[in-house]
């Protein structure tokens, strides 16, 4: 078991390493291959009236004249060992994990990311709680009342749910609930949980429900089909034959067996969301990881883009890892290879 975990851990770290190398290549190698010089790249980060000399100095300062391997090495070393950054009058040490400094604002990237994370985490936490409860409950009831009006309606809504782009439902929800009825917070609303829990929930309830609507739909469908499959298995028949009350059969035996794959997917979904709900954050103008990424890409602020990609990949890899390990623990049939 421990060997398994260690192997997966090493694999995960390797994966992150490859992700970082590929990301770096896209931003630093591809433009160079397309013929851009170090000065071309640097000219994005100088002021409006900069002359050639200033561009060259900026290219020097940002290290664009160094070989790409050296540039990548500097980035990777910063994450592991920290880095020093020249602020003008003095250098400042940026402790590991140092994702470097913004090319534009010269602010260190890592604190920025930590600053944005609570917004994304709040979004993911609330939404995932809602969609898990709503999705699984709907799925179970649908499965038990197969063919009923509830089942048809629920599955219809579920199908609609997975077919709607969130930037459409989000705008629709904002238009109706915030701007017409005025019952929910308008876009760009966020209050820290520690500051005012009630306000936090009020501000986020609309994005939560919007995300949850889409996710719950899929969960309901999965739960329902899983339950149907499970309920036709032998051990359920055995349980029923033992005279257990239907309630116990359903909840204790049926649902439990169905939940394993649901939990897997849940873990992966939450991991993905933590890496930045780009569309949701854009639609509701929430300053989380996703919107940070979009702004960074728009401004060509490469250290920020690298940082945010790494964080997003980290959450995805972490979620995969946790799920795999949990799976191995829960399900004895999984071979630990």
């Amino acid at each position: 078991m421990i060997v398994f975990i260690i192997r997966r851990l090493v694999g995960a770290v390797l994966l992150l390493f490859v992700v970082s190398a590929v990301t770096f290549s896209i931003f630093f190698v591809v433009p160079r291959l397309a013929g851009a010089t170090a000065e071309d790249l640097a000219s994005r980060y100088v002021g409006k009236t900069a002359d050639e000399q200033q561009v060259r100095q900026m290219a020097d300062k940002l290290g664009f004249h160094d070989p790409l391997v050296v540039q990548y090495g500097r980035f990777a070393k910063g994450i592991v060992a920290g880095a020093d950054y020249d602020y003008g009058p003095a250098a400042e040490h940026c402790p590991a994990p140092c994702f470097g400094y913004s090319f534009l604002t010269q602010a260190p990237v890592w604190p920025d990311l930590l600053d944005r994370l609570p917004v994304t985490a709040s979004l993911a936490a609330g939404a995932s709680a809602i969609w898990l409860l709503a999705g699984v409950a709907t799925g179970v009831i649908s499965a038990l009342r197969r063919g009923s009006i509830f089942d048809r309606a629920a599955m219809g809504v579920a199908l609609a749910g997975v077919s709607l782009p969130i930037f459409f439902t989000g705008l629709l929800a904002l238009g109706i609930f915030s701007y017409t009825l005025g019952v929910t917070a308008p876009g760009s609303s966020y209050t820290a949980l520690a500051e005012d829990p009630a306000q936090w929930a009020y501000d986020l309830i609309l994005p939560w429900i919007t995300i949850a609507f889409l996710y719950a739909a899929g969960y309901a469908r999965l739960t329902s089909s899983g339950m149907l499959e499970t309920m036709s298995e032998d051990f359920i028949r055995t349980a029923r034959a033992k005279g257990l009350p239907e309630r116990t059969v359903v909840l204790k035996h049926g649902l439990r067996a169905t939940l394993t794959p649901i939990v897997t997917i849940f873990g992966l979904d939450v991991g993905l969301l933590l890496g930045g709900a780009i569309l949701t954050e854009s639609t509701f103008s929430l300053n989380g990881i996703g919107r940070y990424a979009i702004l960074a890409i728009g401004a060509n602020d490469l250290p920020k883009v690298m940082g945010v990609t790494m964080v997003a990949a980290f959450f995805i890899v972490l979620a995969n890892l946790v799920v795999d390990i949990l799976y191995a623990v829960v399900d004895p049939r999984v071979r630990l290879t």
Binding site: V162, P165, I166, I211, L214, Y215, A217, G218, Y219, R221, L222, I265, L268, D269, L272, L273, G276, A277, I278, L279, T280, G290, I316
Partner: peptide
């Protein structure tokens, strides 16, 4: 497994 968009696809 999961879709790159922040929306699911069963």
């Amino acid at each position: 497994m999961t879709v790159p968009l922040d929306l699911p696809d069963s």
